[in-house]
Computed example of a mutant assay.
Amino acid sequence: MNPYHFYCMNNKLSINNLTLFITFLAFSCRATAKEENKINSTASPLSLHAGNEKYMMIDTKQSVLTWKGQNLSGLNSQTGYIYISKGELMIENGQLTGGTVEVDMNTIEDKNHGRDNKLVNHLKDPDFFEVEKFPYATIAITSVVPVNDKNQNITGNLTIKGITHPVTFPVKFEVRNGIVKADSKLVIDRTQWDVRYKSSKFYDKLANQTMSDSIEFHMKIIARK
């Protein structure tokens, strides 16, 4: 074969091979870019989160804690409110995983008579919550166990009058449009936090004046980004 023809053939083959290689490389780059875009799209944070978790600040103007106490017979009960001073909830992958709530005990009020009355003033005294010495009560969430899509059981450390005990209670929880709504009920034995006034555990012969050791708290919490 003519050496010139042989050189031309080899040169054409090299060019063809180079063309095939460039085409393959370009195709591979496009495919890789598509895969990376797909992965990045999948891994993009949800609108609720920064990364996979987000601290949501409690809206203190729309959140409230309702309390209920009664005598031992249950015939005479009192209901009122306490307001949240600050707090935050930690949301991870759309679920509640932690948080803290601080309650201002100076905001105790009676449902029917407001804050400035004999009952409320007595609740602030050492017989009950000793508010001047212990102005805040707090709960810090330590664990959350899902029950279903909207209901969870929360365990946390509840501190009242400087005394801390663990408590567990159910919470109905919802996240929608960047807003968290939590609704829960907690019943405690007040004597565990040194609230002993007219308790049958510490006072004898109180008859129908004996007060129940149980205090019920109903918490409605709104939290936002």
Rank of each mutant, 00 (worst) to 15 (best):
S200I: 14
A31K: 11
V147K: 08
D116Q: 08
Y83P: 00
M211G: 01
G114N: 05
V131D: 06
D204A: 14
T138A: 05
K111C: 00
I58R: 07
H122R: 05
G80K: 04
Y83F: 10
D125R: 02
G80I: 01
G87P: 06
E53Y: 05
K12V: 15
S41A: 10
I108Y: 10
Q62N: 15
G98R: 13
S212I: 06
A33Y: 12
G51L: 12
L158M: 08
N153W: 02
F24Y: 03
H218E: 08
S85M: 06
D104S: 07
D127I: 10
K225A: 11
S47V: 11
D204V: 11
R30L: 12
K220E: 12
L186F: 10
V180P: 01
T164C: 03
H165P: 03
T210P: 06
N148I: 06
G87L: 11
L25T: 14
V101G: 04
N11T: 11
V64G: 00
H49A: 15
N117G: 13
L123Y: 05
D127Q: 10
I188D: 06
G162D: 07
G156C: 06
K185S: 13
K201T: 08
L18I: 00
G74I: 02
K161I: 10
T97P: 08
Y55W: 04
C29Q: 04
A182W: 10
V187D: 13
R115S: 15
K38H: 12
K124C: 08
R196K: 15
Y7C: 08
D116N: 13
D183W: 10
V167Y: 03
K86H: 12
A50S: 04
K185H: 00
S212Q: 03
P135E: 04
I141S: 07
I22Y: 10
P146I: 05
F173M: 05
E53I: 05
A140E: 14
D189Q: 11
N106Q: 08
E92Y: 02
N10I: 12
F217Q: 04
T138R: 09
S14L: 15
H122N: 14
D127F: 06
